[in-house]
C-alpha cells in the first residue's frame, strides 16, 4: 500500500499548494528513502508520476483529500490540497520514515517556492537518473530563466539539507 496522500499532506502542515509542488515533494521524499511507491518520468516541470496523479485523484474521490481550485491574478488556475479526514491521529510512520522525519523534510520543502522545488527535483533527476555529464549546464539549458535570481543555488541548498545533493 502506498503512503496515504492525506497523511502526507498532514505531515506537510495540512495543506499543499499546487500539483507541481505535491509531485516534487513526493519525488524528493522517495529519493530520500521514505517509500518506493511510484515510478517517475521526466516532463515539462521535471520528474512526474502519472500513478501519483491518479492516486491523488482517488484520494479526492474518496474524500480523504479536499481539492480547492484558485486562480492567480493572471487567471491561471492552481489546486490547493488539504487532508479532510475528520478524526486524524498522527501516525507513527510514513513509509520508512518516522512522522517527524517526514515532517522535517517537508517543512524544508514548504519553505521553498514551487519553482525551486521543480529545480531541485530536476537537478536530482539529471544527476542520478539521466546521469548527464554536467547537470548545471543541462539545468540551464532546460529551465532557462527559472534558474536565475539564485533559484538554482537555493535548489541545491535544499538538496543538501535533504542529503540528496550531487557531488
Amino acid at each position: 500500500m502506498p503512503v496515504e496522500i492525506s497523511l502526507l499532506i498532514l505531515a506537510a502542515g495540512g495543506e499543499i499548494v499546487g500539483k507541481v509542488r505535491l509531485q516534487k515533494m513526493v519525488y524528493l521524499l522517495e529519493q530520500m528513502g521514505m517509500a518506493d511507491d511510484y515510478s517517475f518520468d521526466y516532463h515539462h516541470y521535471g520528474p512526474y508520476s502519472a500513478d501519483l496523479a491518479n492516486e491523488v485523484d482517488e484520494s479526492i474521490f474518496n474524500k480523504e483529500v479536499a481539492e480547492e481550485v484558485r486562480w492567480r491574478a493572471d487567471g491561471v488556475g492552481y489546486s490547493i490540497y488539504r487532508q479532510s479526514r475528520t478524526s486524524e491521529t498522527v501516525p507513527e510512520n510514513l513509509g520508512e520514515f518516522s512522522f517527524e522525519e517526514a515532517y522535517s523534510a517537508l517543512e524544508a520543502m514548504q519553505r521553498r517556492s514551487a519553482t525551486v522545488l521543480e529545480l531541485a527535483a530536476t537537478i536530482h533527476w539529471l544527476s542520478f537518473v539521466e546521469e548527464v555529464p554536467n547537470w548545471r549546464t543541462e539545468l540551464v539549458r532546460r529551465k532557462g530563466v527559472k534558474t536565475e535570481r539564485g533559484r538554482d543555488r537555493e535548489a541545491l541548498e535544499l538538496l543538501r539539507e535533504l542529503n540528496l545533493a550531487p557531488v
Binding site: 500539483k19 507541481v20 491561471v76 488556475g77 490547493i80 517556492s113 514551487a114 519553482t115 530563466v145
Partner: peptide
C-alpha cells in the same frame, strides 16, 4: 508571461 508553476506563491513569478 509568467511561466512559474501555478501555485499560491507570492513574489515568485518567472517571466519570459
Amino acid at each position: 508571461i509568467d511561466v512559474s508553476p501555478p501555485s499560491g506563491d507570492s513574489g515568485e513569478p518567472v517571466y519570459t
